[in-house]
Amino acid sequence: MSQPIVSVNHAVKTFVVNKGLGGKKYVHAVNDVSFDIMPGETFSLVGESGCGKSTTGRLINHLIVPDSGEVYYNGQDISKLSEKQMRPLRAEIQMIFQDPYGSLNPRIKIQDQIGEPLLLHTDMDPAARLKRVHELLRLVGLGPSHGERYPHEFSGGQLQRVGIARAISVNPKIIIADEPVSALDVSIQAQVLNLMKKLQEQMNLTYLFISHDLSVVEMISDRIAVMYLGSIVEIADKRDLYAMPVHPYTQALLSAVPIPDPTVHKERILLEGDIPSPVNPPSGCLFHTRCAHCTELCKQQVPPMKDFGGGHQVKCHYAEKFSGKSAEKTL
């Protein structure tokens, strides 16, 4: 088996909020998260707002540093690197953001924005850079004439193509795509997803795909991790996760997605209440406040991550009962 390109090992990240009279409080944004991303695959993080999926993405490209735990990139622990030591690696880890308009500078021509990573990471002369920019524009389905324009002259879908062109300009190994299609209409969303798939094949890219939309994730991913309140509750192969979700949260999440087919009438698991505040996470299993199968054990003890083989991991005390299988090992 090949080496993982990214490996996150028991990463923890908390942010300080409210340094007021009550003393410091902490948001537990990422809580003991571990996973591996293999070269060439699309690994997705799904979850509802505030579950820590974006923070996890930012840990990987060193925009933030974990409080404890390690993040390995190609076997090297990057969580301890300084900004300067990190810089040469940045070309290999690129990012696509959610809001395509907000992630581009409104006063700079598109061709200069796409060319900027080339300016920083390569020693191309201006003519070679421009040639490469035109090549990139064609690759994402735009023309060289688009390079002369400014961001406000584009539609949302076109801007997201520009964002992708900029991310792939320096031949990265891995791209972190944080909700890249959430701001787009469905007909445009399909165009961008297809483009990302095509580029992955052409350039042998690895994606970390962050999204709240389970239908989109199913289309693009190979493996999926479901997050809840800063921790991963289930990791599985795409097929396993959608065919037989084990964790009660995954089951509820999947059943809540409206299906665009009026002839399908599925049994819906309605979750009670809201997501608890990450400032004050519940004791024991983080999901116990909303879980229909909750017992005393769940309220008191944090469940271990159990491995059911084939890369299927579930963080639930009763995972054996829900899956009908016995765990191969406990991590």
């Binding site: 469905v186 007909s187 969303q189 399909a190 997803l193 389970l214 239908s215 989109v216 199913e218 289309m219 097929r239 959608y242 065919a243 999947l254 997605v257 299906i259 665009p260 087919d261």
Partner: peptide, 9 residues
């Protein structure tokens, strides 16, 4: 163009 959950496309 809408991805359908569970369709495996």
């Amino acid at each position: 163009s809408v991805p359908k959950l569970g369709s495996g496309v």
